[in-house]
Design a protein around this nucleic acid. Structure first.
Lengths: 104, 104
DNA sequence: TTCAATAGTCCCATATTTCCGAACTATTGA
DNA sequence: TCAATAGTTCGGAAATATGGGACTATTGAA
């Protein structure tokens, strides 16, 4: 049984969030998650559908550790949601300012 | 004679900017530069004055390559300025949104 | 119940990046 | 001309990212 550890709101750091988003694929993942509401990892993956599973899993772990997303198990899938409320509470305006510029 | 190459405004990428700022020291450097107007590298350095020269030089190179700062030679010193106009033109609101949250 | 399929994690070897000491370059001032 | 200053560049060690393959958990069907 895999149990995910998400950082508390106050443990989310600016450098951590920026580092997590400083990767085109992760930026795209967050973008997709925000558009869809909530979805599963593989489906939420970046444009390329041929990305290795381990790489994708790693990207989700980075986003999780940075406090950007929350992952819960739902059957065989892992459902991911952007922790919008937490990020916005901690860094008001940041998420919107960044994602506004993520290339569609 | 060292000649610096700065990326053109349109070559500045979001992921590049985020990656450059995804480091506490570089975040602090940019913060200091914005507060001071323009200043020299070593002086503009992060809190710790005992950081190795090569490391510092490297951080400035990263910021330069990302298009965040412009460096010009002024005697023995290198004067650095944040390319505020370029960044704001390319990603309106981004810089302010990020630096607003950089811990004082 | 058992078995196959699915979704994803974990391990680990390789590849890439970062850090920093040391040697080097350019400029100024004595 | 020489020393001091400010910073770059080189190169090896340390840290981190990538991705293949084996593993785990869950579901749905035989």
């Amino acid at each position: 049984m895999v149990q995910f550890v998400h950082p508390a709101r106050d443990d989310i750091t600016l450098a951590g969030v920026l580092a997590a988003l400083a990767d085109p694929m992760r930026l795209q993942i967050v973008r997709s998650l925000l558009q869809e509401g909530d979805c599963l990892s593989c489906t939420a993956a970046a444009p390329c559908p041929d990305i290795p599973k381990s790489t994708l899993s790693n990207h989700f772990r980075v986003l999780r550790d940075a406090g950007l997303i929350q992952t819960t198990k739902k059957g065989v899938e892992h459902r991911n949601v952007v922790r919008e409320a937490d990020i916005n509470a901690r860094f008001p305006g940041l998420l919107k300012a960044i994602l506004k510029h993520a290339n569609a």
